[in-house]
């Protein structure tokens, strides 16, 4: 039963990684010093510009489509509520998750799979270094630190998109719109969005590691593993998002 075995291996890796991160937080060993900062920088650099741009454009798109409808009912001001809730609860986590899969997940899989081809993973093992710890812990810690910043940035620029549309298409003054957003959106909404994005981020990194570590041997396997990693990550994100919707609403 291949599929069952794959699922078992995925969850075994997830469990191992949670254990390794916990172990690392207690005793700072088995990971190169400076590697977390390096990963933080690489992840932020890779993901912030593109996720900022995407959420800004989505903010504008959703606002324009909704503004036309709301205007018909004279409910202009509710654009603020709609954008605030839609972006923070749903669109930012989903878009951020998908972009993380494409930018960060893909590069993690490619890196690990290439290391497998060049026997670097074997070399780590025989040096008594556990690759699943040495390579994954810095990336998991980094994604945990990157996600809150990313969510704050994406929420902000997404709502800016709404502000602009409200101002120029509906004529709603900026302070009025902002006040309405702040009234509509609670801390709970923000935390839900953050929590979801955090789960998606972890799903991306674990899926990326899984596809990298368990790829079939051979250089041509690297490209295949990378593609599969992105597909798996996106499928996981959408599946998890659906579970969240059931649980939360």
């Amino acid at each position: 039963m291949r599929p069952l075995e794959d699922i078992r291996r995925f969850f075994a890796l997830l469990a191992d990684e949670i254990y390794y991160v916990g172990q690392y937080l207690r005793r700072r060993r088995s990971v190169l010093p400076g590697e977390i900062v390096h990963q933080l920088y690489a992840m932020g650099y890779r993901s912030f510009p593109i996720i900022g741009l995407i959420t800004f454009l989505i903010g504008i798109t959703i606002s324009l489509t909704s503004a036309a409808q709301l205007k018909m009912f004279g409910a202009d001001i509710y654009l603020a509520d709609l954008i605030g809730i839609a972006m923070i609860n749903e669109l930012v986590p989903l878009m951020a998750g998908i972009m993380l899969a494409g930018k960060i997940g893909a590069s993690i899989t490619a890196e690990i799979a290439a290391m497998k081809v060049t026997e670097e993973l074997d070399a780590l093992k025989t040096m008594g270094i556990v690759p699943e710890k040495f390579l994954m812990v810095p990336r998991l810690v980094a994604i945990t630190l990157v996600v809150p910043l990313l969510v704050a940035l994406a929420d902000f620029v997404g709502i800016i998109g709404g502000v602009l549309v409200a101002r120029f298409s509906l004529g709603t003054p900026v302070p009025v719109f902002v006040r309405e957003v702040l009234a509509a959106v609670t801390l709970r909404d923000f935390l839900i969005g953050l929590g979801k994005t955090m789960v998606f981020g972890w799903a991306v990194v674990i899926a990326a590691g899984y596809k990298g570590f368990f790829m079939d041997r051979g250089p041509e396997g690297v490209g295949k593993a990378t593609t599969e990693s992105v597909v798996l990550s996106i499928a996981l994100i959408i599946g998890l998002d659906c579970v969240f919707a059931f649980v939360l609403y």
């Binding site: 290391m115 060049t118 070399a123």
Partner: peptide, 9 residues
């Protein structure tokens, strides 16, 4: 190792 296997990073 046969192909050295130094860490490229």
């Amino acid at each position: 190792y046969q192909n050295s296997a130094l860490l490229g990073a």
